[in-house]
Amino acid sequence: MKGISKLYRGDFNTMNVEQQPDGSQVITLTKDGENKIYRFRVKNLYQEDEEVLEDEVLMVEIPKHIKKRVKEAMKDAKTKQ
């Protein structure tokens, strides 16, 4: 229930909602400085019979090859100074 809790606290900066054919919504929340994506599927959001059907926290990581290129670019810039 981490995602829905974040939603109710307003503890996020971006919110993406996908309406599903069955009437449920897949909601994705992210927050600055947190390398996490809170993704959950909820039915009847904000209604009395609200029900969270799925709930997961995904880690966001910069791909290794990008990290490597950034590191090289920074090193390169330092060398030229």
Binding site: N13, T14, M15, N16, V17, E18, Q19, Q25, D32
Partner: peptide
């Protein structure tokens, strides 16, 4: 200050 809110929603058909 980390206070921004950006909300999108998608629908089909």
């Amino acid at each position: 200050a980390g206070q921004q809110k950006y909300v999108t929603f998608a629908f089909t058909s």
